Simulated assay, not measured.
Amino acid sequence: MRRSLASAALLLPLALLLTACGGASSASTGTDGGTDGKGSVTLNVGDQKGGSEAILRAAGELDHLNYKIKWSTFTSGPPLLEAVNAKAVDVGGVGNTPPVFAAGAGSGISVVAAWHGTSKGDTILVPNGSKFTQTSQLKGRSVAVAQGSSAHYQLVASLKAAGLSLSDVKVKYLQPADALAAFTSGKVDAWAVWDPYTSQVLQAKQGRVLTTGDGITNGLTFQVAAPAALKDAKKAAAIKDYLDRLRRATAWVYDHQEEWAKVWAKDTRLPYEVALASVRRTNATRVAVAVDQPLIASEQKIADAFTELKLIPRKVDFGEFVDRRYNGNLPASTSAPHASS
């Protein structure tokens, strides 16, 4: 497996695993038949492989629910948000960029919770034999990235920091499994991607990091709810309890990194060493923060960047797509470790 990242056996888990950062995808969704909990209220939760359900179950936070959770698994953030807009999902987790594209499309979504971590797992990778040592050298070169993903914005921001624009490189819009194949076969010069793909390439010694998103992107992930669910008093109460449990489970990871990596590896079929590297680099850094004005301003920068590139059809006021009712006593988004704009 370490000798050949592009093998069919490895491409399968890569195709299945799209983290909360997920990219644009037209892939179909799968709905699990079972439910957790009991009671008259059913909360329809959108998830991604190895995501919220896995971490909640590992942390023991799905016990003693007085409402039911019906899980639906999506390949990535954009189709999950399409389901939120269609009222098929009440709440679900995504990265920092899919909500911007959903807002640009005028979708019915509300960001209700946020986590902040480092962006060290968000990288631009180059092959080991590449002569490139800085981002500015990518001018005129081909870069693979998943359209609409957090890596898409990371690429835009990293190029800008190096004095370049998106038009200065040859962008190849590829989903991770296809991008991996293109990267390892030398068909692209670089790959903008997120963990666990970063850890997968590094652990297999198939590439190295040219630059990371640390200090460049905001390191945010979100839970996004359907406005209709928030207007339903019983579902709104269930969402509050669900978010409280998810915050505790995320904090649990910090002191149980090896235990969580074992669960995550089993759930995603990734090698344990890759899962553990990703947990240590990315997952264990996440801290729950308030959905506040600095957070809105940070997301507004992403929206404005994509509007300027004409990848979003209209001006977006991101503040119209948040709901702060679940902030409680959470720290400000700017006070979290490694906070960035």
Rank of each mutant, 00 (worst) to 15 (best):
G129R: 08
S110L: 11
V289G: 14
V41T: 12
S199W: 00
P79N: 11
Q147R: 15
V126G: 06
A229G: 03
A114I: 04
T42K: 02
D32L: 09
A59S: 15
W191E: 07
L62E: 05
A20C: 06
G104F: 02
Q137L: 11
K205Y: 00
L12Q: 10
L16E: 11
E53M: 05
G140K: 03
Q48Y: 00
T184D: 10
F74S: 11
F318T: 08
Q257Y: 05
A228W: 00
A261Q: 03
L295T: 08
P227Q: 01
T217E: 02
A8H: 07
A88P: 03
N283W: 08
K262I: 01
Y272M: 09
Y254I: 08
A226W: 00
L309T: 02
F321R: 12
L17M: 12
T42E: 03
L174D: 14
L210D: 06
P337S: 14
H152S: 13
D47E: 01
T29L: 06
P78E: 12
V316G: 10
G108H: 15
Q223F: 04
L309W: 02
V111P: 07
A83R: 11
N329S: 15
D317S: 14
R2W: 05
S278P: 11
V169G: 10
P331T: 08
H338V: 12
Q147W: 14
A275W: 10
P271V: 05
R2G: 13
A113V: 03
L18R: 12
T73K: 14
T184Y: 02
K87H: 15
A233H: 06
R281I: 06
P99I: 09
K38Q: 04
A261S: 13
L309N: 11
K234N: 07
D36T: 00
K131N: 14
D36P: 00
F74H: 12
L246N: 13
D63Q: 12
L17F: 08
V84T: 14
R141T: 08
G121H: 09
D195I: 01
K170W: 02
A225P: 04
R324E: 14
A288N: 05
V126F: 08
L159C: 13
L43K: 04
A157G: 10
N283I: 12
G108S: 15
R247A: 12
W252L: 04
A288V: 03
G50I: 01
W71A: 11
L18Y: 02
A288T: 09
G163P: 08
A275Y: 08
D122Q: 13
L220Q: 10
L276E: 13
A24R: 04
T217Y: 00
K301P: 06
L166C: 03
L311K: 15
L12D: 09
S150N: 15
N44K: 11
Q175C: 05
N85W: 07
S167W: 05
H338I: 04
N327C: 11
G23E: 10
A102M: 05
A88N: 15
G129N: 14
D189E: 13
Y67M: 06
G108C: 11
K315M: 07
E320L: 15
G50L: 01
D241F: 00
E259W: 00
D241E: 12
M1D: 07
S142C: 09
K120C: 08
L159F: 12
A179S: 10
